[in-house]
Design a protein around this nucleic acid. Sequence first.
DNA 1: CACCAGGAATGTA
DNA 2: TACATTCATGGT
Length: 194
Amino acid sequence: MSELLDLYNSLLAEYGKQNWWPADSKYEVVIGAILTQNTNWNNVEKALNNLRKENLLSPKEILKIPNSELEILIRPSGFYKQKAERLKLATKKWIEIYNSKIETINLRNELLSLKGIGKETADSIILYAMDRRIFVIDAYTKRFCKVKLNLEFKEYDDYRDFFEKNLPRELELYKEYHALIVEWGKNFRTPKDL
DNA sequence: CACCAGGAATGTA
DNA sequence: TACATTCATGGT
């Protein structure tokens, strides 16, 4: 099934290279991955800029400030109380695992054990912050499969297996493909009977 | 005015 | 397993 690769090339031709993830550091990717949950990226940028302005975009600083202050700074990204708490949990775990040499599957389980990190967020962190080959699935990706390939799976990991088994295992391809699918999803509006 | 965005946890049956 | 609800701001 190199049809997946053909689809990738047509997306690339149509939308151009996306160059995800926009961030100054790996840690900023982790923060962004949590802040962007069910929120548009524009609002995440506002929250990130608030943190950047105060030089708070480091694990040490995030753990230092009280939740009440963190909540105010990240408010534009929505769900700010949950996210403030979850940023701290993720930061503690990030410090613990960043320099460790654990297997990708165990790394994924470590992330999934945290409150506030589900499969999509975990895989985003693994791919875009840890530079490990795992294919990120989101709502757009599922719609993409149905619209372009007439394919539907039951589980998140079934979609992930499908992409990982039918594409060359290249880090940059994984990163770019997911970004392109999101860009496609933003532009592609369907009647919601899909 | 309604609807959704680069989700996840919790509760119900 | 399959849905429904909650969390919440900001753009269109």
